[in-house]
């Protein structure tokens, strides 16, 4: 923990910013904008996120029901969970072992991506103030490190897309946009936390980018959050129950 605290101190504006940057002007327009994006707009984003996810899940189940009902005949809880379990453990599948660096980055990325916003003190404070619910939080200094891991992983994915021929082949402009959508809340959140410059602007941008990410999840490739467990369950059941083979 010592190290995180040091990192925290080093990055602190205390050491970096010119004294003049301290006197932020107190823009009332900024505050109105903040109240709007952190109030009504946050409501909209969360509703679209939850309803959108539900809609996508129900629709895929209805589609399967209509078109390929026979899938249900061999779906099995046992083989589904066996497959999912293998895929969520680093290096437990052949594919994970084939690409060790990618595997480490992908796992570190996803763990930090999901844990950070849920257990971030400032987010919990905002939940507490508007809903009177609160839960256990991570120390801010640890969150800084996890945020940097997410940002670093995004850079890794970007470079991989730019230089690796096998990935280039299946890369579209939308892949870069999606990567940017995911990185943005972390970059702006980080800037906002350290208050290097333009604190109010970065805070508002942070909230906006977080909301864009939430809205994008059900309607873009980010929906793999919903579908990858389903795909794995399907593959696991087919391989386990029909082909009597392993899918990992």
């Amino acid at each position: 923990m010592i190290h995180f605290k040091r990192l925290n101190d080093l990055l602190s504006r205390k050491y970096w910013a010119p004294v003049s940057a301290v006197k932020e002007h107190k823009g009332e327009a900024m505050n109105t904008l903040y109240n709007f994006v952190s109030g009504p707009l946050a409501w909209v984003a969360f509703i679209i996120f939850f309803v959108g996810c539900l809609y996508r899940l129900i629709r895929i189940l209805v589609l399967v029901h209509k078109k390929e009902k026979y899938i249900y005949t061999y779906m099995s809880w046992k083989y589904s969970f066996r497959s999912i379990l293998h895929w969520v453990i680093p290096f437990a599948t052949v594919n994970w072992r084939k690409h060790p660096v990618l595997t480490i980055v992908t796992f570190a990325f996803h763990i930090c991506l999901i844990i950070t916003p849920i257990f971030l003190l400032s987010h919990i404070i905002l939940w507490d103030e508007s809903w009177s619910v609160s839960w256990w939080s991570l120390p801010d200094s640890l969150v800084q490190a996890m945020t940097l891991i997410v940002i670093g992983s995004c850079i890794f994915f970007l470079i991989r897309r730019l230089i690796s021929p096998e990935v280039q082949y299946v890369t579209f402009a939308s892949d870069y946009i999606i990567l940017a959508i995911v990185a943005a809340p972390f970059v702006t959140g980080f800037m906002s936390y350290y208050q290097w410059f333009g604190y109010q602007v970065f805070t508002i941008l942070h909230i906006l980018s977080g909301e864009i990410m939430l809205i994008a999840i059900p309607f873009t490739r980010l929906s793999h959050m919903l579908f990858s467990p389903l795909t794995r369950a399907y593959m696991g059941s087919e391989f386990g129950g029909v082909r009597h083979a392993r899918d990992w």
Binding site: V22, E28, Y34, N35, Y199
Partner: peptide, 20 residues
């Protein structure tokens, strides 16, 4: 501050990181 529409509302407007 929210009620009056005046005064700081964002974390860093109150918890200001200052040099010196």
């Amino acid at each position: 501050h929210k009620e009056k529409g005046k005064g700081p509302v964002m974390c860093g407007q109150c918890h200001v990181r200052r040099p010196n």
